[in-house]
Design a protein around this nucleic acid. Structure first.
Lengths: 201, 201, 201, 201
DNA sequence: TATGAATGAGCGTTCATTCAT
DNA sequence: TATGAATGAACGCTCATTCAT
């Protein structure tokens, strides 16, 4: 086979990306190192030049994925924007995440593993959101918009409540049409403000 | 080995139970068919007399587990009891579920797989709860206690919000001390009633 | 492939024997599990039904080999026979051992590893001989034939001296014609008796 | 990496020494070419500029090692010194050799391979000693001190007898306290002279 | 001379599944 | 119904060696 050398960083990224895509599609156990290198058309040994083990790529790939994601979400939350707008951005981004993930799932061969991974990732992301959202709620308390006693608990409840709406149906393959108005109403309640006030914050 | 014949249904149940226990403890990939039959002291071939494949037992085992669980929870919800009491029962049962599952995890060898499985199961159970809780909320609307516009959405939001509080910290190994009063407060808000009224329903 | 079942003991022995032969010929590292099962015409998985690892067969094979050998030699030494006869028997048996081992060495591909293994085995056997020979010398002291001060040291010296004569040339591929008379003469000296007396013991 | 050019002979020697050290410590199979070049901080390809294969360095390294050793021993034997002194020097040098080799063995990871290599080296050295010792014995015959019929056989027997005393216990990790007086006594017997006379030669 | 990314065959091992008894 | 020896494909991983630069 013709030998194509590439800068290490680039090769490493290639492998990482191929691995992530396959892990997302098929899960850890149904993805072999052979699959990963086959996708790149390189020798199996090359994989081990860049990663010490399959486990290592797995960790690296998931970390990159969830961290990127959480970073995007956190940035959106912290941007100067009305509270409602923040909620909407998060919801949209979550929807994009699910869509991306489903797009990767081209066949249903390894559905079970894929769902597991997906759950894990989205749960993880949800957990990572607790901190920044708590910060926003604290700020809202400070500004006198809300009078929440336990901001972290409220943040957690809110995030998972919304997560449930997005993720709620079994296997989330046919998601119910998502109603933003509903989210606003429930959020207003959880925060203890009227919908009208919420829209002004 | 001495050959012990048993009625098919009983044998099938034995295998299913052994499999479930091992899957719960070690995850799918770290449980071999050999492990399952070893636990029962029967021959490897016997397994295939009752199940077409390992995948089949897996599905059967998980289905049995989550369905049993959801059944218990649904029964608790439908029992005649104040609404607050229902919420408390669900919270407690969830806690028991996590504890059981953690108890099964005697070593930390397969922690990653265990967490995945655990997420999957508890998410599944949460999804199964949507229907009965929706029923309860509808009833509460009918009785004039609440005026919810979309009972299913509210049920979903409520269940996942509580789920998040129980499950919210990363890897949920050291769960934050759970505060029931907080749940009551948030639930009251979501339902749009005062805490005092909620306690009377 | 047609499936031939055998009693476990028999199969185990087959595998052990094939493994020993290959280890003797090629050394540990140049013998693959695939080689072993290929020789028997069975599936690779079967190997692991009988042995937990390649290392395990290796240990079992060498133990069997050296122990058998040392047992044969010890028996010869302890048989009631003139001392000279004992020496001769040991010498002959050693020669047979070397011959067997060389016979196994059909090609010279892995000469280095073969020699290593061979050295190791024969050294081991020599070491195992120290004890019984010490016993014989002690008996000779008791009967007044000899007056050795340190029987174990003398036994060790004698055994390795003879071992050297048998093994002395480089790579022991072309062994010098072995002269029993010479052995008798040197033995007599080491024991501090005349050759004539030695022949009478 | 910065590119450092060196005179070929020097580089070759560097590689050879690094290889020898690793082979001595870990054995052939547990030393990779990558290990060798890593120790020198040079590229993998460079290795193949100086040696055609790993096997070739191995042979070269061992040859250098045993030849050096035998040379030192031969020199000691040929120096003008009482016969007893020669024996003692050889014994001591052997002891140093074992000690060096054991010192290299910092961990017990590759004990088995290390023992094999050690056996091989020391046996080899013992074989290389046959020639010079034969020369000494011949000289002693000439001077009328001894009347040995077959000097080479006697030399072999003597060397291996002493070798056995040094090496005799299993795995030679805890060597028995070595008794020089015993060596003198046995040597005297093999040579057919009294201990007193031996000390005067 | 020297680099180091890339190759690819081979290894030990696991395990779901089969089948003769 | 039940046994358990046997199968064989697949897996993660290693490493001596090559070659474009």
């Amino acid at each position: 086979m013709t030998r194509i050398s590439k800068p290490p960083k680039e090769r490493r990224k290639e492998i990482l990306d191929a691995a992530l895509e396959l892990f997302l599609k098929n899960g850890y156990e149904n993805t072999s190192v052979a699959d990963i290198v086959a996708r790149l058309g390189v020798a199996q040994g090359l994989f081990y030049y860049y990663f010490k083990s399959k486990e290592e790529v797995y960790r690296a790939a998931l970390e990159q994925y969830t961290d990127d994601f959480a970073l995007r979400l956190t940035a959106l939350i912290l941007e100067d924007r009305p509270f409602i707008g923040k909620i909407e951005m998060v919801v949209k981004t979550f929807e994009v995440m699910f869509a991306e993930s489903e797009h990767a799932l081209m066949d249903t061969l390894h559905l079970a593993e894929h769902i597991e991974l997906d759950n894990r990732l989205s749960l993880h992301v949800a957990q990572l959101l607790i901190e920044p959202v708590t910060g926003v709620l604290r700020e809202m308390n400070d500004k006198g918009f809300t009078r929440l006693e336990n901001t972290e608990t409220t943040a957690t409840f809110l995030i998972f409540g919304i997560y449930g709406l997005l993720h709620g149906d079994l296997e989330h393959i046919h998601r119910i049409a998502f109603d933003t108005a509903e989210v606003v109403r429930l959020t207003a309640r959880v925060l203890g403000v009227s919908e009208e006030d919420l829209k002004r914050i």
